[in-house]
């Protein structure tokens, strides 16, 4: 497995922390998934200090924390949010999200590259939420990113890998770069598919948090990731257009 800014993850699942039915279910789902990374955010603090109890819960998970810049639409917003996140969470890791389209939450890749340059120059270890565009991927690497996170499908859509061809091309174009499918996952089969393409990790949130049984779904996602990775390493056969009998023809009785 490739490392993420020098960190080798024991488990290729990165799991979001939003939308669970309760904090207890969140904690159980994380345990069941074995996820190595938890994504978190920053939002306005209320007078009751809601953020403090959430942070206590996440610290107890004892896994890597990846703060995001979710909801940011400008370079300035994203950079300031990243700076605030670094102080609060005590990590240089930042999941850089710069949203460019309201309905699809598609990343604004132009501002993304600009923000990545600024943050990398400030010592951040940037995990950019991007598309499968190869040229943008190259620009992000030139900006200093050492990980790329193309979307599978729009955030929260559960549509899986919308452009498998493009994602396969990205894997082939950047064979040594850690690649993470970020967003669009709905089912364990999507996770398997991503891992079978040779992706190094999968980041998801809604598919687990909004499942009928988030804890069981978290476990299913973990098993799917393991199966997909093993498949990738085992060298799956190429599909054929025509049938080829598996039982030997030689020796068949003449009846």
């Amino acid at each position: 497995m490739k490392s993420f800014y020098g960190v080798s993850l024991a488990n290729p699942l990165m799991l979001g922390t939003a939308q669970y039915p309760s904090p207890a279910v969140l904690a159980e789902a994380f345990k069941a998934s074995g996820a190595s990374v938890a994504t978190v955010s920053l939002r306005r603090e209320g007078r009751q200090g809601q953020g403090q109890s959430f942070w206590s819960l996440i610290k107890k998970l004892n896994i890597w924390v990846l703060p995001n810049t979710a909801g940011c639409h400008t370079v300035r917003e994203a950079v300031t949010t990243a700076q605030m996140a670094r102080e609060v969470f005590g990590t240089d890791w930042i999941k850089l999200e710069l949203i460019g389209h309201t309905d699809s939450l598609q990343p604004d890749v132009f501002q993304l590259v600009e923000a990545a340059k600024l943050l990398c120059s400030e010592g951040f270890k940037v995990f950019p939420y991007t598309t499968e565009d190869l040229v943008v991927g190259e620009r992000l690497l030139q900006a200093g990113c050492e990980v790329l996170m193309p979307w599978g499908a729009p955030i929260g859509s559960a549509r899986g890998l919308s452009n498998e061809y493009g994602l396969r091309a990205m894997r082939a174009e950047f064979p040594d770069v850690p690649l993470v499918i970020d967003a669009g996952i709905g089912r364990p089969s999507h996770v398997s598919q991503a891992m079978e393409l040779g992706y190094d990790a999968v980041l998801m949130n809604t598919a687990v948090a909004r499942a009928g049984n988030p804890v069981a779904m978290a476990r299913a996602m973990a098993l799917a990731a393991k199966a997909g990775r093993l498949s990738y390493e085992s060298g799956a056969m190429e599909p054929r257009d025509m049938a080829e009998a598996s039982t030997p023809v030689i020796g068949k009785a003449f009846l």
Binding site: A18, V40, L42, W55, M84, F89, N205, T206
Partner: peptide, 10 residues
Amino acid sequence: VEVLAPMQGG
């Protein structure tokens, strides 16, 4: 002034 705290995120 913005005062932010840890929050759930994906």
